[in-house]
Structures are given as C-alpha cells and as structure tokens.
Design a protein around this nucleic acid. Structure first.
Length: 204
DNA sequence: TAGGCGATGACCT
DNA sequence: GGTCATCGCCTAC
C-alpha cells in the first residue's frame, strides 16, 4: 500500500517556512488529516466549512476552535492514488514552529517572551503569524505579499511520529509528525472523548 | 432555530 | 493531574 499523499505532504512541510503577516515560522510539527475516509478529518462531513478541503491544493484552511483559537491547515488536494474517485480531500494541520522572522511582533501578538512557546500549538502558531478566518482560502504558493509558503527544503533526516492530539475519532492513527530535538514541539494530549488507548504489547 | 460539541490553551492543584 | 472559558459550526427538530 502506498503512502498517502497527505502524509508525504506533511513530511515535506517539516522544516519549511510559512510567511504570515510580517512574521515567518519554520514548521516543526504537523498532523495529517485524510479526506472522507478519515473520521477525524473535517472533510469526513462535507459542509460549507470543509468545502475548501475538496478544492485546490496549497490553499490555507483556517478554522476556529473552542471559539478562541484559530488553527491553520495546508490543503493537499485530492489523492488519485489513494482513492479511485480522487475525492480524498486531505489537509495538514500546522501544529508548531519556530519564529525565524518578526520575533518582536510575534512576542507582542502572543504576549510572551518565551521564544520556544511563541508558535507552540496550532492556536499559538496561528496567533503568532496573525492568521485568522480572513486568511481562509489563501493560495500559499502565490507570489507577492500575504501568507505564503517558502521554498521547498531537503527532506528531514529524522522525523518522529505519533498519534494525533486532541482528536476523539481515529485517535490512534500515528499521523502526527515532528522534528526531533525541537523545543517548540507541543506536548501530546489525548482527547478525553477518545476511546481508551490500546495497550502496547511490548514495553520499549 | 436551538442545543451541543470541539484538530485548544491557560491556569490551578 | 484536572478544570474551564467561549463561540463558530453542525445536527436535529
């Protein structure tokens, strides 16, 4: 079985720079979400909000969580190899990063001077970049000012993976990826609504 | 149209 | 470790 496109895209985004509103972040942690077949994905139910996930790849999908935090995703587009219908609307949630440009502005937006925590967690990352619902649908590859992705970077030599944070469904799918030895990577927390984790068969 | 939920994060013990 | 703020969506009626 081939690796889903969204997982390849998630790996490719690690180490890449996302330029926001006068702040740039090097991405250190991501989560992959499949399309209709992934019950944890917003694309599992096709609604007005998730419609963008079924559209063009490399668009920014911003949604609001708990009424307080904005979370930013990169739409990866259909995966013809993964679904004969080509209708697996994948997206990669940007979970954490390191501010590499505009640190002062990011500190002001976040209200902290702890640089490791400026973009730690999806809500904080979006906050540091100044991303909001107004940025939803932005073409991340379009040249010029505005939110966009920096150039591709060589694949990371080592990428760690684990279960996705905070999801109630498909909570044990290890589609969370992060770079080792990065203090900006957020801590794992299982959703209280997720069923109990399977007991590991061997102790590492 | 009303009610409930959630891909969070900060704070408290 | 646990609790809770807070509001945009989604679903059911």
């Amino acid at each position: 079985m081939s690796v889903p496109l969204v997982v390849l895209r998630a790996h490719g985004l690690l180490g890449r720079v996302l330029v926001g509103h006068e702040v740039s972040v090097r991405i250190t942690e991501v989560e992959a979400y499949g399309g209709a077949a992934d019950p944890a994905s917003h694309a599992a139910t096709r609604t007005a909000r998730s419609e963008i996930m079924h559209g063009e790849p490399w668009r920014l999908y911003v949604y609001r969580s708990y009424g307080l935090h904005s979370c930013a995703n990169v739409v990866t587009g259909p995966d013809p190899a993964g679904d004969p219908a080509g209708d697996t609307a994948g997206a990669v949630l940007l979970r954490a990063g390191v501010v590499v440009h505009g640190v002062e502005l990011a500190r002001a937006r976040r209200g902290t001077t702890d640089d490791d925590r400026l973009a730690r967690g999806p809500g904080n990352l979006a906050s540091a970049l100044g991303l909001g619902l107004a940025d939803n649908g932005t073409d991340l590859l379009a040249p010029g000012p505005g939110v966009r992705l920096g150039p591709e970077v060589p694949a990371a030599r080592r990428v760690l993976s684990g279960p996705r944070v905070g999801v109630a469904r498909a909570a044990d799918v290890a589609w969370r990826f992060w770079l080792p030895d990065e203090p900006s990577v957020s801590a794992y927390r299982r959703s209280p609504r997720a069923p109990a984790a399977p007991r590991p068969r061997t102790v590492p």
